[in-house]
């Protein structure tokens, strides 16, 4: 018996794809998705204006695809096929071009998503400090709240307040297990989230960076 044959057997995957889309065939009754004809693809005027403004910022208007997808996602709540077709119409690209771009980036949702985004960082620094437990707690607390979407996220660039989360773009931390419930309550009440833990108000850790009249939150571990 050789070296490799001595290894124990592996329990098989259960059948099936874990990536949405992998197992899907095309719908042969649909027409090919070519560049949308402006006469046939209505685009909300406000969205069109914003996308056109973004396109004007770049030497090559294609550069505006990510900003335009952000705008479309804001407008439609997610990057729905309709949203993508509208962007494609304004930018005169194929919808596939934009689908390809959108699916590459974590912040674009190609399936309907809840209104509120809670990105819990589960990367190394945060997880050393208990991010995985917080993530589980956050999922549990948000359970039943249809409009709150909790996602584990890779490093969000705020390990100094780890474990941390980005709630609708607002960075908060360090989080303990009780904060999960508070986040849900703040979101449901339409309040600013965990105001006392918002990164925007936190002082720099470096003592020489500090000023005497600082009114915000002290750095982690340097309270009082």
């Amino acid at each position: 018996m050789s070296y490799f044959d001595k290894r124990p057997p592996v329990k098989r995957y259960e059948h099936g794809s874990r990536v949405p889309g992998w197992d899907e065939a095309v719908d042969l009754t649909k027409p090919p998705a070519t560049v949308p004809d402006p006469a046939l693809t209505p685009v909300p005027a406000e969205l069109r204006e914003k996308i056109e403004a973004a396109m004007a910022l770049y030497p090559d208007s294609k550069s505006a695809s990510i900003p335009a997808l952000h705008l479309a996602q804001q407008h439609h709540g997610w990057c729905s096929p309709e949203a993508i077709e509208q962007v494609a119409c304004v930018m005169q690209l194929t919808p596939a071009y934009l689908t390809s771009v959108a699916s590459f980036y974590d912040m674009f949702a190609l399936t309907p998503k809840p209104k509120h985004d809670v990105y819990v960082c589960t990367n190394i620094s945060c997880s050393l400090l208990g991010a995985d437990e917080f993530y589980e707690q956050m999922c549990a607390s948000a359970h039943g709240h249809e409009d709150i979407g909790v996602r584990g996220f890779e490093c969000l660039g705020a390990c100094d307040i780890g474990p941390m989360a980005s709630v609708n773009g607002e960075y908060v931390g360090p989080l303990n297990l009780f904060d999960a419930q508070l986040i849900v309550e703040d979101l449901e009440a339409g309040r600013p989230v965990l105001e006392h833990k918002q990164l925007r108000n936190r002082a720099v850790a470096d003592p020489q960076g500090r000023v005497a009249d600082w009114t915000g939150i002290d750095p982690v571990g340097q309270e009082g």
Binding site: L128, L129, D160, A205, D206
Partner: peptide
């Protein structure tokens, strides 16, 4: 430098 993980005073230091 950004220091994080298992330290007592994580954060940015010059």
């Amino acid at each position: 430098v950004s220091v994080s993980g298992d330290v007592q005073r994580p954060g940015n230091y010059e």
